[in-house]
Amino acid sequence: MDFKAIEEMIHTMDSSSLGYLEVNWQDISIVMKKKGESGLIKLSNSDNNLEELKDQVKKVKESKNDNEDTKDTPNINQEVKQDDNIKEIAAPIVGTFYSKSGPDKPDYVSIGDKVKKGDTLCIIEAMKIMNEIQSDVDGEIVEVVAKNQDMVEYGQTLFKIKLNS
């Protein structure tokens, strides 16, 4: 991972609503935190630094649990079901949401579109890799929650699909 990639990650995080990002790749760990939390950006490539980083992450997590101002942070373990006929499609990774394959191309799906299992709904770009997100159900798009070029978090709802009866 070169400095330019790290710099781009910092810029992307800064311009997004993302509050926490942790990247572990080969011998490098990067943790970024914002939104009123104490800022933390650290690179480590030795065992001592890694242990220090783990301690800092543990402290941040503990202070986050004690902090009552965590309403902005979604709890991805909590599943809210408003309608048994609605399936929420969540982001499987952190990245940039794209509703279409190019600037001059139409959206993959819009409200009211019928989709089948395996149809491409969007793309999420993570570390310069374009990941197609596909429907795992047959149904009709009732809501597109994410907006084109938004940063999305793991577990964040992207689409709501009304299941075929």
Rank of each mutant, 00 (worst) to 15 (best):
I86R: 06
K116P: 04
K105V: 04
T157P: 14
Q149F: 08
D107P: 15
V152C: 06
S110Q: 09
K128N: 15
K71E: 15
Q78G: 08
E132R: 07
L163E: 11
D72T: 10
S110L: 07
K147A: 13
C122Y: 00
V94Q: 02
D136L: 08
K116Q: 12
G155D: 04
L121D: 01
D84N: 13
P106T: 00
I111F: 04
D113E: 12
Y154C: 07
D138R: 05
A146V: 01
V144E: 01
L163A: 08
D150S: 10
S110H: 07
D150W: 04
L158H: 00
G112C: 02
S110W: 02
D66T: 01
S99Q: 09
I133G: 01
K162V: 00
K81L: 15
A146R: 00
D119I: 00
D66H: 11
E125L: 03
K128M: 15
V152S: 07
K71C: 11
T70A: 13
I76S: 12
K160Q: 14
K162T: 01
E62M: 14
I76Y: 11
V145K: 11
I86S: 06
V115M: 06
D113K: 04
D107A: 14
V137G: 03
C122A: 09
D84S: 11
E140D: 09
S101N: 12
I76Q: 09
N148Y: 01
E79M: 09
G102V: 04
K117A: 08
P74M: 08
D72Q: 11
K114Q: 13
G139W: 00
N148F: 04
N77E: 15
T120M: 10
P103R: 07
Q149T: 12
G102L: 06
E79I: 13
E143S: 15
D104L: 05
E132Q: 09
L163H: 04
K105E: 15
D104E: 10
K71S: 15
D136N: 14
T73K: 10
E132A: 09
F97Q: 07
N75C: 13
I161T: 02
V137T: 01
G102H: 07
I93S: 06
S101R: 11
E125W: 03
D150I: 04
I133N: 01
D150V: 02
E62A: 14
T157D: 10
K147W: 05
I93H: 06
F97C: 09
P106Y: 04
K59E: 12
M127R: 11
I76G: 06
D107F: 03
G95Y: 05
D113F: 01
G95F: 07
